[in-house]
Each structure stands twice: as structure tokens, then as C-alpha cells.
């Protein structure tokens, strides 16, 4: 395999249903329902998805939800802020574990 990630593979996502169609159908039905307008707008959901895509660092998701955000009416400033939210939570999650480190260190230290 030349590259692990190929942009054209994103278009083949539904091929995952060839081996286990019932599970795939359940997943895609759920997936599509999640992104329909509910208490949150489709635009807001796409921004959340974009932030999460950066957290899970999935290039397919980043590609798909960058386009989705633009098509739902978000602008690059809003999208950049969403990525900062993801970054803050990721960074915060690391930093807050520093408390655990300090607790362990304190117990071991004089």
C-alpha cells in the first residue's frame, strides 16, 4: 500500500457494507439521523463534528466536515474557533491529569 490514507477512499465509505450489510445499514441510518436538524441545527452539528474530527485526527472526517461546515453556512473563522475548542479540551484533558501526577508525586515524596 503506497499510502494509508487516500482521499478517494472517502467516497467508498459505503463499501464497508459489503461484508456486514445489516450492521452497516444500522450504522448509516443512525449516522444520518444524528446529523438531521433537531434541537441543534445541521450547521451546529457539523461544527461539533469538525471539532471532534480534529480530536480523533481523522483526515476523512476533517475533509468531509470542512466541506459540510461550509455548505451549512459556517465560515472559516467559526470553524477555526471550533478547532480551538477541540484543542482546548484535548490540552485541558492532558493538563488536568497533572493533578493525578501531583497526587502520586506528593504521596511518594517527603
Amino acid at each position: 500500500m503506497e499510502r494509508y490514507y487516500r482521499p478517494e477512499d472517502l467516497q467508498k465509505f459505503d463499501e464497508i457494507g459489503k461484508e456486514a450489510p445489516e450492521l452497516a445499514n444500522k450504522f448509516f441510518d443512525y449516522y444520518n439521523a444524528v446529523f438531521e436538524e433537531g434541537e441543534l441545527t445541521e450547521r451546529e452539528k457539523a461544527l461539533i463534528a469538525l471539532a471532534v474530527a480534529h480530536t480523533v485526527q481523522c483526515p476523512y472526517c476533517i475533509d468531509a466536515f470542512t466541506q459540510a461546515c461550509l455548505e451549512k453556512g459556517s465560515n472559516p473563522a467559526e470553524m477555526t474557533e471550533a478547532v480551538h475548542v477541540a484543542t482546548a479540551i484535548r490540552g485541558g484533558a492532558s493538563l488536568v491529569h497533572g493533578v493525578q501526577m501531583r497526587t502520586v508525586a506528593e504521596k511518594l515524596s517527603m
Binding site: 445541521e42 450547521r43 461550509l70 455548505e71 451549512k72 453556512g73
Partner: peptide, 17 residues
Amino acid sequence: NPTGAFLPPSQTQTEKR
């Protein structure tokens, strides 16, 4: 009109926003 190579959002949502 979209400001790039993508389609417009829902008109109802755009108007509301």
C-alpha cells in the same frame, strides 16, 4: 452565493441566522 466551490446551505436556516 457560496464563497467557494461548495453548495449553499439551507435557505431557511440561512435566513434565520
